[in-house]
Design a protein around this nucleic acid. Structure first.
Lengths: 220, 220
DNA sequence: GTTCGCAAGATCGTTGACAATCCTGGTGAC
DNA sequence: GTCACCAGGATTGTCAACGATCTTGCGAAC
């Protein structure tokens, strides 16, 4: 439980939370003061976050929050499509009765959230669903890679479920995934997951034709 | 071009080359002396290699070369199957006439190497083929992930092409991939690649039922 | 008015030393 | 003979200071 891990996690959380804007410079001395840590610790934390792909590290020029362009987000989502497809297949093969009940409960929650317009709850349950499916699939390598990729595009994903009409499209897709996984239909589960994540990729690619991220001032 | 990158790359190369055995402890002061670098640089290099999955980092207990078990190698190969399938599809869509000629030349080289029993040349051309297909697909994220995964199982892969009878199985698979990619057959390319890498996964899983890596003393 | 060069400030890169932690081997009690 | 305990050494974790590099703003030459 070293301080290094601590500050790295806090910094990561701050970046994911949007405390620092993309392309914003992360100055070691400032961060050191902010987190009451030595510059040394900040520095090592930045190195770690850089190999996670969250910050960009230029020699002698410091660190900045890495900006994920829309094309890059699409690429990332394409990989997710392939890997999550594999995960869904495995989940369908391995799921237990107990877990089936759990997934179905999540499905009901999703439908409820959409019908009542609770977008944030929908977004949360969405993340929970994908995460639980990964747990069920018991594929450590896939889980690691998906989480690594997800961390890089939280910002894009976040905006996704707030798009008007988006839940109406993705809800049936989610339910189809749940159905297939719960009925031990490996082929169907892979297909449903690929369709779903493929849709996400498509939606992301329409966000901004210029290839630049949607740059509205964050309200938080 | 900082020294940090330099020593990290040299350390990585050394691990991949087998200079340090799996599970071997990597002591910071020793490495620092060996590479004529400060302990600080070594330390940060180790942190980066840890997030690449090449070394294992335990707090207060130092670093050791990560050992990839056979089940883990299978997992990694399963991911490769999914991602390289995607890459092959993209390559089939994007390939130019010039690149078609190049791939076909590689195919002839592979056949020749097998017929003349040149296992090492076959193994090299194999790596070249996969690498060139990645180049053609122009998918930076996929390339990054595949290379990250490959780095983790060089040892297993290395032994694979030396297995008796293995080239006889994998040569036609490789030729099928080349055919499909060169004829702009996206579906076929994905299918052929998935079949091929799936075969690799299957072969790896037979290496040692105990789930421990094959532990023969390296001859180098 | 523009461009180039230079100097000052800001920031990163590296070092060596010290503190904290863990592992090892030996000693003694039971 | 076995176990708990406790040095002492080995190794990692952290720090503050110094040196290297880059950026910025000013001024002079054209």
């Amino acid at each position: 439980m070293s301080d290094l891990d601590d500050i790295r996690d806090r910094l990561r959380a701050a970046i994911l939370r949007g405390t620092y804007a993309p392309r914003q410079r992360l100055i070691e001395t400032e961060l050191a003061e902010e987190y009451r840590a030595s510059r040394f610790l900040v520095r090592n934390a930045l190195i770690q976050l850089a190999s996670d792909g969250l910050v960009e590290l230029q020699p002698n020029r410091g660190a900045r929050v890495r900006e994920i362009s829309v094309p890059e987000a699409v690429e990332i989502t394409e990989i997710r499509q392939a890997v999550e497809g594999l995960v869904a297949r495995r989940a369908a093969e391995l799921i237990t009765d107990e877990e089936i009940a759990e997934l179905q409960a999540i499905g009901e929650g999703l439908a409820e959230a959409v019908s009542q317009g609770e977008l944030l709850r929908y977004s949360d349950l969405n993340a929970t669903l994908h995460s639980r499916i990964r747990d069920i699939a018991q594929h450590a390598t896939a889980t690691r890679i998906i989480e690594q990729l997800n961390a890089q595009l939280v910002r894009h994903q976040f905006q996704l479920s707030l798009l008007p009409g988006r839940p109406a499209v993705s809800l049936p897709e989610h339910l189809a995934i749940i159905d297939a996984v719960c009925s031990h239909d490996a082929d169907g589960a892979e297909r449903a997951m690929r369709t779903h994540v493929g849709g996400v990729a498509g939606t992301i690619s329409t966000l901004d034709p210029q290839g630049r991220p949607v740059d509205q001032e964050p309200a938080w």
